[in-house]
Amino acid sequence: MKLPGNPKVRIGICVFAFFALVALVGPYVVQNLMGLSPSDVHTADAMQGPSGAHPLGTTATGEDVLAQLVVGSRVSLLVGLVAGLVTTALSVLVGVAGGYLGGRADSVLTVLTNICLVIPGMPLLIIIASYVQGRGGWLTVALIIGLTAWPWGARQKRAQTLSLRHRDFVTAAEMTGESRWGVITRELIPSLAPIISVSFLGAVVGSMFADAGLSFIGLGNINITSWGSMLYWAQNGSALTRGAWWWFVPPGACIAVIGVAAGLINFGIDEISNPRLRKPPKKVRDRAEAAKLRRRTEERAEPATAPKAQEATS
């Protein structure tokens, strides 16, 4: 896969790739190669600032902050990705199907969406999460977030679909004999791809925030190391009042950086997914180049007949 030319998107993707890499191999590196542990308690080393032995210092119970940050990134990213996928898939399915099919299917889906919409998300999340009490680990948290966050996206996608539904190219697809499912998957969703990818990113970041928020108020599984539970323990250990900035700044900063990266990608993604702004594929470009070259050599062969054209092409 090649990186898109747009610098904003490129930076954003690099940031995401960096965190993905950290989440993937980081835990192995810090635990096995650097010998740091996110959970080993060393009361002797408690509350120490950054040092050679603990690059990001230690917590009130002497756990290594860097190790926690790296191990926690895996959980935070996984929750974000899974919840983002669930949110986006549900919102696309409900929104696009409702908007396109219309009639009774749309009425039922709209009622469902609106009911889920008026139930405030965070309180619902808190109720479910406190009921579940961290059972089932990060996957439960991700599913809870995904299942409560889709209605806004569904509404937005339904509105967009309504504006596409009676466009001639959709009617034309129906008239080629495309089934409804075919129209949805082959015409509507590709046309909505920019919106869908932007909202997917938003959902990932939103879910990571929600996960951090839940853990921070102690409703996630606080025994799993994640950025949210780090913040929870930092707050619990009065890191702020005791000036232990190395404890709460790194997880907060990671969350913020991911948010900024998502913003950057959003800014640039329109250019990528809008074919009007897309460069033609290399094959086509090469062919155009070749044709231009051929024309030029032909003109050179008979310069008297086409001196103007030669000027224009060179």
Binding site: D168, T171, A173, E174, M175, T176, G177
Partner: peptide, 25 residues
Amino acid sequence: ARGKRAYYRQVQMVFQDPFSSLSPV
């Protein structure tokens, strides 16, 4: 879907506005 496909196998239409009748993607 089958009924429609059978119909459009026989009957085809060319739209008036070529700027909206082709999918941009």
